[in-house]
Design a protein around this nucleic acid. Sequence first.
DNA 1: AGATGGATTTAGACCAGGCTAATTATTCTC
DNA 2: GAGAATAATTAGCCTGGTCTAAATCCATCT
Lengths: 223, 223
Amino acid sequence: MDLSPVAEDYLKAIYHLEDEYGRSVRTTEISEELDVTSPTVTSMLDSLDERGLVDYTPYQGVELTDRGEEIVLQLVRNHRLLETFLMEYLDYSWSTVHDEADRLEHHVSDEFTRRLARFLGEPATDPHGDPIPDADLRMPDESPYTPLTEYEPGDNVTVEQVPHRDPDVREYLSQHRIGPGTRLVVDEVSPIDLVTVVPSSTDTSVALPTHVARRIGARAVTK
Amino acid sequence: MDLSPVAEDYLKAIYHLEDEYGRSVRTTEISEELDVTSPTVTSMLDSLDERGLVDYTPYQGVELTDRGEEIVLQLVRNHRLLETFLMEYLDYSWSTVHDEADRLEHHVSDEFTRRLARFLGEPATDPHGDPIPDADLRMPDESPYTPLTEYEPGDNVTVEQVPHRDPDVREYLSQHRIGPGTRLVVDEVSPIDLVTVVPSSTDTSVALPTHVARRIGARAVTK
DNA sequence: AGATGGATTTAGACCAGGCTAATTATTCTC
DNA sequence: GAGAATAATTAGCCTGGTCTAAATCCATCT
Ligand SMILES: [Mn+2]
Ligand SMILES: [Mn+2]
Ligand SMILES: [Mn+2]
Ligand SMILES: [Mn+2]
């Protein structure tokens, strides 16, 4: 299967959207995720379906096939190992590393990734706290982190996992000094889709909408 | 200037051919180098000329402009730093490293290359003995190595620079255990375009056509 | 100087991946 | 259950990069 970077990005988008919504994915969702028009998506879905990488039912939605998912898992492995390398050896910050990896993931060979994984010591998690599929593309077990939304006011936690694909979310968190390793106290978990936290480095309260807080993984600090 | 990898490869081909023949480059030469047909080359030359990256006179030939050369030098810098990393840290062999670098060179950012150069200690030469342009794209001075063709029978030398872009040449040298660091004795420099050498590791004489021997750089071993 | 052959360009086609405008399905609302 | 609103697809066009076949240029040789 010789796939263009463009086609690979459609598969990745479908993967992430399936994961986010837990159901088959709509044309519009892909078109928004990738910033292309919906007719463009339709024609790519036709072509991916022909190649057996997705199951696509017009007007109904699309899902990855096993072969499609395998391709995505290899890309995710490439991506997360690259991010690990870029941060640990080239001193990229967690908020700048994604774009570089998102391009390179399509262009490194499997051989490269094998060797890089060995060089890095076969890590199971990347610096954003996300799991890295192993050489057989098995995803490590559930991450042991608890979403910020499940803590109580007053809880003292260390951030371990940070959503970073969306540039706006990334920028906001980075601006407010919330990243991997940040210590913070949960201030308020409001029923109107808001969590407020106080990073110990700043003493300033930071408001987080639930959809962001839910994706921040943290570990309780045992005093 | 937002250039496709394909366009970049045309510029690189022109650069290497100019270097090899010391004159402007013909359509056919590019078409052989890149394995595309000559009409394809003609149309790409039109487009590169319009963008000011080459000077192209139909039926006469083509040369890089300063802007074109700058782009190539950045690619060469990317390429040689990548090869250095791949060999020194990921244990690629000198004969397998080129293809990976030849793809990646088009996809790493300038930021990546700056950081990689720092990580590697700002090397001036790659593991094939080729000079690496510095951050301002200045090529280091002439390599201090002497082509194998200029030695005399009986001379004892260490190979420092090895041509490796042509897969056939690369395969031949690798097969006969001639690579960076190889010690060998010059056996015969024949007027019929042939140099024979004996690598000290094998004791078997290896014949090299002049066009290959000329590109092998070596240093005399002082006994 | 003219004829010829090889190199080169022009003409016309195709595919991937985009777009806009128009059409058709599906879903929502009353 | 009909009409309106929304989502999705189809139709048709464009660009970049490729090809083959046809036309043209130019260097060389007599
Ligand atoms: Mn990422
Ligand atoms: Mn990507
Ligand atoms: Mn190389
Ligand atoms: Mn290349």
